[in-house]
Design a protein around this nucleic acid. Structure first.
Ligand code: MN
Ligand code: MN
Ligand code: MN
Ligand code: MN
Lengths: 227, 227
DNA sequence: TATAATTGTTAGACTAGCCTAACAAATTTT
DNA sequence: AAAATTTGTTAGGCTAGTCTAACAATTATA
């Protein structure tokens, strides 16, 4: 299996994020990839041809791009490494959860199968990183975390919003106002015994929400599902 | 402080090894550096000019090269990272001592002051790596390890030969035959109470040596001097 | 459907890091 | 001290990855 350059790996990961990880899309445009990676479209165009030659992406002139099976496999390996390193930094080296990404961006490119498998073992096979994002296992599979609603979440845990039950405009407008969106981390700070209000923290801002509201928010909680 | 490329860092480390770490030399020649790094002299020549411009080395046309104060500081940082990572791989991830170097060669280039300081702390400020080489501290200082002779070494410890007392050809020939040399790691496997013979392992090979011989071998032992 | 706006491609240029081949300086040997 | 050897430099060329500027195709809008 050919070894990819640092740059090629970043392109694969970028396309992965813009397609497979975005529920509603299966292809990514050249300009879109350029914006995501912070380079110019002309640069992306060159790389798309190269990745196509290596059979890592599907691409036709003037068309959108998507990962091949092999490309997807490679992308998942990089995501796995990124998230395991973030977990290591957070759990073992006491990095704050907002400091881990930048360093993991470098560490994800270290080439050593043994290293990453040992690291996984050392961290006790975690299923999610400090941001709540799922960590693919050594086979590239994502363990599907059980979903529940925000009302069921335990105090002190940090979960991630993955969907809503109610779809009314009224409800969604309120969701939006609280700074909530798909993949948004939410921390449950407290529950009031008196009226079952729930105190949450979203993006550094604190809110108190009603149980009626909370039971409409679908979440996954990595902490609850940790080994 | 400007950030150096992966390649520039490897050149600095190479010059460091060929000069400061070699007791008898203070300068390195172009061809010598080329051989050490596995590139051609013409390539080295280009880089020497570049490193000179950045004030990281002393270099004059047709002259030998040596590190400036700043260059040395940078080189020591890289060596520190390399050896801390080797220690991490060996102690925390159960890598064999002969597997760590290759991966550390990649990890040493990760840019994050916080990462390396936290790693140092996590490893409890080790003073030597799995090969017995000294690890510079965060200030770039090397703790000078006390020397003793092989006869004083404790069973189970791995030490490193740093010199000899006897200088006779007869003795040195025997030293050589056992695979011993400066910086060679030696592991003390056992001591026989009956005749004080010492069982050692050198480079995977086992030998039994006399006390008379052992007291001529000067060593340092990182394990004995660990905090 | 014609026009405008957006999206994507090409050509040409640049830097870092590498190479080979030819040459020049320094050092060693005779 | 001349010749031979070793060591170091230069010129020119290559690739990966980036850019700008000009242009072409596609898509949206009037
Ligand atoms: Mn991240
Ligand atoms: Mn990256
Ligand atoms: Mn090493
Ligand atoms: Mn290196």
């Amino acid at each position: 299996m050919q070894v990819l350059s640092y740059t090629e790996e970043n392109y694969l990961k970028g396309i992965f994020k813009l397609t497979i990880e975005m529920a509603d899309k299966t292809e990514a445009g050249t300009n879109e990839i350029a914006t995501h990676l912070g380079v110019k479209p002309a640069t992306v165009n060159d790389m798309l041809k190269k990745l196509k030659d290596k059979k890592l992406i599907h691409y036709e002139r003037y068309g959108k791009s998507s990962l091949t099976k092999e490309g997807k496999k490679r992308a998942i390996e990089i995501v796995r490494k990124h998230r395991l390193w973030e977990t290591f930094l957070h759990e073992k080296l006491a990095f704050n959860w907002d400091e881990v990404h930048e360093v993991a961006e470098q560490l994800e490119h270290i080439q050593s199968k043994k290293l990453i498998d040992k690291l996984d073992q050392f961290l006790n096979y975690p299923s999610a990183d400090p941001h709540g994002d799922l960590i693919p296992n050594a086979k590239g599979e994502l363990s599907i975390l059980p979903r529940k609603t925000l009302i069921e979440e335990l105090v002190g845990h940090q979960c991630k919003m993955v969907g809503v039950k109610d779809n009314s405009a009224e409800f969604l407008k309120y969701v939006d106002k609280l700074g909530l969106s798909i993949n948004q981390p939410i921390k449950v700070k407290a529950k009031q015994a008196y009226d079952n209000q729930i105190d949450i923290e979203v993006n550094g801002k604190k809110h108190s929400i009603s149980p009626k509201f909370a039971e409409q928010i679908i979440i996954v909680c990595p902490t609850c599902n940790k080994k």
